[in-house]
Design a protein around this nucleic acid. Structure first.
Lengths: 360, 360
DNA sequence: TTGTAGGCGTTATCAT
DNA sequence: ATGATAACGCCTACAA
């Protein structure tokens, strides 16, 4: 009997804990071929002769062999894994993007490593560092604002870096998102077109959620450029209908003849709708309301909510596609392409909550 | 000059693609110590003398060393990674659980590998197989129903297996969730207590979403045991307010004097509320409505929605805690503990949509 | 406390 | 087409 397994312990003085998992050598022994052939077969079944292919296949099945990706990745110096950093997983937007990305990457045999930064740039840096230690194929981070440490890591990493959900200056390799200032401007233009002049932008935790802050800035600046001062309300709590209702009251205190309110997202906007109903303020007749996100309830609520549809899943899909194409090109020996910005845009969904002018 | 790096290529006939990444040897050379000292320092900084510790620390910083987890995990035969399979990432419930789990595992240095089965048991098996090839520390899957392949893999895996979001018979190692039949029964008892006798349960894709199906079964069986036949409506589309509205109409067609409708989740319920308003059916006076999930809008909508709060984040947290405790115990040399079922329960949130009896 | 060397399970190179 | 064998970067038993 030729026993070639590493467990044969030829008087092993320095013996090692045997993982006792089925290895490629085991498969090779069972199929009476070399490990190299098994490895080859696994990567390209056509490359081995029709005589031994079935033997290998059989051995794999019989032994229930599961390749060890750690060893494989170490040897090949590349890991089929993509590190993804999002601010929060509970956030429906990012969840949707991650879902789309995962689905597409999965089809191509890539694993997703996931981390949440909790809107904290230090955490982001730690996560990036942690991901890097896995030698990932690529890294995906949220937004274009990172601290010094993250910048350094990302630059040294020598792997494609994708920034998502936001477009901005100086892309590392790829940016897939849209301009949140443009969102704010679109909402401003829409409400202004309705005749609204006494307006407010309300949000929650906008000092941390920079994209919401950018929407607010785009909104307020657009009005300011036309000589109108928009009120900006920021609740120091997580976004919720309750926070939205409170923000509406705060806005009404400061500006009793408010005609329109743009909310940092749909959840806040829903709270505004409910609070307005409670206060007997007709929407949209006396108050126009807009949101952001086009969440499931937005088109179903009464009145239906004017909002921005952010194409979260398109972002995820495009990231995967662009990245896969880039990796493919690289495999063909092509040079690293220029940094690229993909603007997936967004759509203003005008619905009943801002259908008619508030001054009618 | 003592050049001990592996790149010194002493007439390397069999040279290998150098990753040219900074390795532990580089750090060791820079700090003028051996690699094992660096390794030791990394794992337990106290264990190394105060003389060389700062040298190592400095070298790590100067060189920007990032440990290679692939090599480390391969050598140590364990990977600080947890494989997680959820049906869908876009689903807010699972997203919340994953978020909580990720947060807790992250604090302990574990990576999350994420996969979505799309409610497909075959996909689940593939994902489990893929995760296994990473030699994860543990595996977390959703629900207690798996196909044969998954069962085999999970049993052979030799790693702790957690089933979440559902309790049932024959746990592998750990189940953290609650009984969905009990949810259905609780809702049934609540509505029955209100005096409702003409009732319906509406849902979407319940043949694939087995947990929703269990809620329906618990609901219908509870009534059946009391001689009441509940109507069950299943929409063949993804759950949405629109689907909920359509389901309500279908229910009213079949049972015009409907007194109460339990929905498979809050999104469906919201659609029912809106559709009822549209139809001029007073809620709760003429029709009581309940949901499942306690989504953000549920307590804010008008009327506020009676629903079930599923404690999604508690599930994630408990999984992490139980698993970490188990791993700790194992590290102490303790034997594998008995399979355990953790029922995190749920809470019935009675709100306005079912506050008064429909027969008042 | 520090260093030495063997092994973890693959992939890749080269020779047959 | 197939097989030896050297990396891959680190951990760890053991010796010093």
């Amino acid at each position: 009997m030729t026993d070639t397994t590493k467990n044969s312990s030829k008087n092993a003085a320095r013996s090692r804990r045997g993982t006792n998992r089925v290895t490629m050598d085991d498969v090779a022994a069972r199929a009476r071929v070399s490990a190299s052939s098994v490895s080859l077969f696994l990567r390209n079944p056509e490359a081995v002769s029709a005589r031994i292919a079935p033997r290998i296949k059989r051995a794999i099945e019989v032994l229930g062999y599961v390749p060890n990706k750690l060893a494989g990745s170490l040897a090949a110096a590349r890991t089929r894994a993509i590190g993804v950093v999002v601010p929060a997983l509970g956030n429906a937007f990012f969840a949707e993007t991650v879902a789309a990305m995962q689905s597409e990457f999965d089809r191509h045999g890539y694993q997703l490593l996931l981390g949440a930064s909790e809107y904290d740039l230090e955490r982001e840096a730690e996560l990036v560092r942690a991901f890097l230690s896995w030698s990932p194929t690529a890294l995906v981070v949220t937004g274009c604002h990172h601290n010094e440490a993250t910048h350094t890591l990302l630059r040294q990493a020598n792997v494609p870096v994708v920034e998502m959900w936001e477009t901005g200056e100086q892309p590392f390799d790829l940016q897939v998102g849209f301009s949140h200032r443009a969102v704010g401007e679109a909402l401003a233009a829409h409400l202004h077109g309705l005749g609204a002049r006494r307006i407010a932008f309300i949000g929650a935790r906008m000092e941390k959620d920079m994209r919401a802050g950018q929407r607010r800035d785009g909104f307020c600046d657009w009005f300011k450029a036309r000589g109108i001062d928009a009120l900006a309300i920021n609740q120091p709590v997580e976004a919720s209908p309750t926070a939205g209702g409170a923000a509406l009251n705060a806005a009404l205190d400061a500006m009793p003849d408010l005609q329109a309110v743009a909310c940092s997202n749909d959840v806040m906007a829903l709270g505004v709708l409910f609070e307005a109903q409670r206060l007997g303020i007709a929407v949209p007749d006396r108050l126009a309301v807009t949101g952001f996100g086009d969440l499931p309830f937005s088109q179903a609520c009464v009145p239906s909510l004017t909002t921005i549809e952010p194409r979260a899943s398109v972002i995820g899909l495009r990231i995967a596609q662009e990245l896969l194409a880039r990796l493919d090109a690289e495999a063909q020996g092509e040079d690293a392409p220029e940094p690229k910005v993909v603007d997936v845009a967004f759509e203003l969904m005008v619905r009943d909550s801002s259908r008619r002018g508030p001054a009618d």
